[in-house]
């Protein structure tokens, strides 16, 4: 700001000058919003139960894989002497299976847990009270987005980490590189889908609508990437397949250029979805 502005302020708000001096920056406002979101996650117990569910899912997969031959043998009612040949599962395959489990149950739970994050406050009118204060629309959306990211990346890490540890205990050690690489790729996929949820939570009145639209989009993208890999390799939908490959290939996955594009388009799409959410919110900060 320039000097003229200061003078202008000085003449009209002279009495309040000390107060405006103590005003903190937009960064503090953003942190306040983020703090509120995290406190809400904690008080609604989401920050506790979602990670636990992921941990349970993550442990179950290697345990099931390990006991599967025995379970089949016991339950199979096979005639005496039948030799069941079930190849011992590869550790990396178990990790990939865990990811695909997260891809169904995990994303469903996260999308349902986050579906009302904007629409709930907008429908009740709670957002109106926040947005009449000098708060930027972008920081409102970003604080919500960041809290979703915290919850989803944290839960995924906990669940996938548990799966990795149990795989090591029960089956075999899987190298850290494929584990981390597949984790990051899958986390990016989660981020993309949940940012779609956030957008529709801003766009739609109904929270369920937001969850199912974003899950529908996720299914569509993965199916398309599976059906016509040649043409959809650049789309975020290819990320899940990429993550499975990363988990099962030893060492660093050799990523093709098209695969890199999947990562880049996902990042761009997330940024664009966030920008669209801000625009939508700005257009109608509250409903009656």
């Amino acid at each position: 700001m320039n000097g003229a502005n200061e003078v202008y302020r000085g003449t009209h708000r002279g009495a309040e000058a000390p107060r405006s001096a103590t005003r903190s920056s937009g960064g503090a406002v953003f942190l306040t919003l983020l703090g509120k979101e995290c406190l809400e996650l904690l008080r609604s117990f989401k920050l506790i139960w979602v990670p636990i569910v992921f941990a349970v899912l993550g442990i179950m997969q290697p345990v099931l894989s390990y006991y599967m031959p025995i379970i089949i043998e016991k339950a199979g009612n096979m005639p005496e002497g039948t030799v069941i040949e079930i190849p011992a599962p590869m550790g990396s395959q178990v990790l990939a299976d865990t990811l695909s489990q997260f891809g169904v149950m995990g994303i469903l739970i996260l999308a349902l847990a986050c579906m009302g994050i904007v629409s709930g406050e907008r429908n009740s009118g709670a957002s109106a009270l926040v947005l009449v204060k000098p708060v930027s629309y972008a920081s409102y959306i970003l604080s919500k987005w960041l809290s979703i990211m915290l919850l989803s990346w944290g839960s995924l890490l906990l669940g996938y980490g548990a799966a990795w540890y149990y795989t090591w205990l029960l089956i075999e050690y899987v190298d850290v590189v494929p584990f981390l690489l597949s984790f990051v790729l899958y986390g990016l996929w989660f981020s993309f889908v949940l940012t779609v949820t956030l957008l529709f939570s801003t766009a739609l009145r109904s929270a369920a609508g937001a969850a199912f639209t974003s899950l529908g989009a996720a299914i569509l993208l993965t199916v398309l990437a599976g059906l016509i890999p040649k043409y959809m390799a650049w789309s975020p939908g290819a990320l899940t397949g990429l993550a499975y490959q990363a988990a099962t290939s030893p060492g660093w996955l050799q990523m093709e250029p098209a695969s890199w594009w999947a990562v880049i388009t996902a990042l761009i799409a997330i940024a664009a979805l966030l920008a669209a959410s801000v625009v939508l919110l700005k257009r109608a900060p509250a409903r009656d």
């Binding site: 506790i48 139960w49 569910v53 442990i59 345990v63 205990l169 029960l170």
Partner: peptide, 25 residues
């Protein structure tokens, strides 16, 4: 041949986590 103690040791965390979920709920 399953070692019973190993099996219990592995499954206990799973059961505890599920119990925590159930109790909170």
């Amino acid at each position: 041949t399953l070692e019973l103690s190993k099996m219990v040791g592995l499954l206990v965390p799973l059961i505890i986590l599920q119990l925590i979920l159930m109790i909170i709920a």
